[in-house]
C-alpha cells in the first residue's frame, strides 16, 4: 500500500497516515504545514479552495434549485415561492402609492433603501433554513431538534441575504392596477400580495465549511429562480399564476456576493501560524479563529460586503487584505462555474 511505503521513507511517521491523523491530528497537520512547501493532508496548499461543482435546475417542484459540491461537502438547495396575501398581513401593507408604476422598473424605491430591507424582514418574505440532520456526518442524525450549528448557519444565511440586499422587493411584490373610480381618479398600483421565498438548504454530505457551500448553492439557485407571472383575479378574489412558463420572471439579483471562509491554524507553542482557505472538517476542528469574507466584484472593483470573524485576533489588517484578494480569486472561479 502507498501508506506503508511512505512511512518507510519518512522515519518520523511510524504509523500509517490515517492512524497518525486520528491519534495526533494537531501534530499531523503541523507536520504537513511546516514542510518547505506547505501542503495540507488533502494535498491542497493553504491558499487553495476546493473547486465547486455546480448543477442548477435539477428539481421539478421548485422555482429554482441547485446542487453544489465542494470537495466532500455536497449541498442541495430548493427555492420555492408561495403567496402571502396582503390581506393576511397584520397591520396592513405599507402604502406603495406609485402613480403609473409598472412594477418592473425600479424607478422610485427599487434601489434598496433601508425601508426595503426592513419590509422584507418584517414580512418575513425570505425564509432560509438549513438541514444538517440528513446523516451528512455520523453525528448529524435525524430525530433531534436542529443543532446549534444548524441554527447558527440559518441565521447567518438570512443575515447575509438581508445585508447584501440580494433580492429586490419589487420582484416579490404582486401588483394590481386598480382601475380609476367614477370620480375620475388616476390609475393606482396596489400591492395585493407578496411572494415569500422558502429557501431550503439540505446538506447531503458535510466535510467542513458548511456556510460557503450552503451560500454558493443558495446563490446559484436564486440566480436561476424564475417565479410564475402572478396577477390579481377580481372574479375569484385571489392571486392566480400564469401557466405559461415563458412568462416567468427571473429574479434580478443585486450583485453576486461570494463568501470565502478561512481558518487560522496555530502551531505548537507559537511555532508559526497558517491561514487555511476553505477548511475541511478535520482542519476546522483544530482551528479556533474562523474568518469569513464576503466579496463582490463589480466592474473589476472589489466590494467587501461582509466580514465575519471570531475566535481569535491573529488575522489583522494586513492579513485581511490578503484574504480579500484570495476571496476575489474565489469569486472569479465561482462566477465562471455558475455562468449567466
Amino acid at each position: 500500500m502507498a501508506t506503508t511505503s511512505k512511512s518507510q521513507t519518512q522515519p518520523t511517521l511510524t504509523f500509517p497516515r490515517p492512524i497518525f491523523a486520528a491519534l495526533q491530528p494537531h501534530a499531523f497537520l503541523h507536520a504537513h504545514l511546516s514542510k518547505p512547501a506547505p501542503a495540507r493532508p488533502s494535498g491542497r496548499s493553504p491558499q487553495d479552495f476546493r473547486p465547486p461543482v455546480v448543477n442548477t435546475g435539477g428539481l421539478t417542484h421548485c422555482h429554482g434549485s441547485a446542487v453544489v459540491r465542494c470537495g466532500d461537502s455536497a449541498v442541495v438547495v430548493g427555492v420555492r415561492g408561495e403567496v402571502l396575501m396582503a390581506g393576511d398581513v397584520a397591520g396592513g401593507v405599507r402604502e406603495v402609492g406609485l402613480k403609473g408604476y409598472d412594477g418592473r422598473i425600479d424607478s422610485k424605491d427599487g434601489d434598496g433603501d433601508g425601508d426595503e430591507v426592513k419590509e422584507i424582514e418584517d414580512l418575513r418574505l425570505l425564509v432560509p433554513n438549513i438541514e444538517l440532520a440528513t446523516g451528512s456526518t455520523p453525528t448529524n442524525l435525524p430525530g433531534n431538534p436542529p443543532s446549534a450549528l444548524a441554527q447558527n448557519l440559518a441565521a447567518r444565511l438570512l443575515r447575509l441575504l438581508l445585508t447584501t440586499r440580494l433580492i429586490r422587493l419589487t420582484d416579490l411584490r404582486i401588483l394590481y392596477p386598480r382601475p380609476p373610480d367614477e370620480e375620475g381618479g388616476e390609475h393606482t398600483m396596489e400591492v395585493v400580495a407578496y411572494w415569500t421565498l422558502y429557501i431550503d438548504v439540505l446538506v447531503i454530505s458535510l466535510d467542513g465549511n458548511a456556510f460557503d457551500a450552503a451560500w454558493l448553492a443558495l446563490l446559484a439557485a436564486l440566480k436561476y429562480t424564475a417565479l410564475p407571472r402572478a396577477y390579481w383575479e377580481p372574479d375569484f378574489k385571489t392571486v392566480l399564476c400564469d401557466d405559461d412558463r415563458n412568462a416567468d420572471r427571473k429574479l434580478r439579483l443585486r450583485g453576486f456576493p461570494v463568501p470565502a471562509s478561512f481558518a487560522v491554524f496555530e502551531g505548537r507553542e507559537g511555532e508559526g501560524v497558517w491561514v487555511l482557505a476553505d477548511p475541511d472538517a478535520g482542519e476546522e476542528g483544530l482551528c479556533r479563529e474562523l474568518v469569513t469574507v464576503v466579496v463582490d466584484l463589480d466592474d473589476g472593483r472589489t466590494v467587501v460586503r461582509r466580514v465575519e470573524k471570531r475566535g481569535g485576533g491573529i488575522v489583522g489588517r494586513g492579513e485581511m487584505r490578503e484574504l480579500v484578494s484570495l476571496a476575489e480569486g474565489r469569486w472569479r472561479g465561482f462566477r465562471e462555474v455558475v455562468g449567466g
Binding site: 396575501m85 398581513v89 392571486v239
Partner: peptide, 23 residues
Amino acid sequence: RRINGPPSGTQTPIFASTLKQTP
C-alpha cells in the same frame, strides 16, 4: 429553532388552468 415564514401563513401558487373553464 428554525426560521419561520409569515405568521399568517402562505398559500401555494394557484395556476389559472386549474380554476378557469377555458384556460
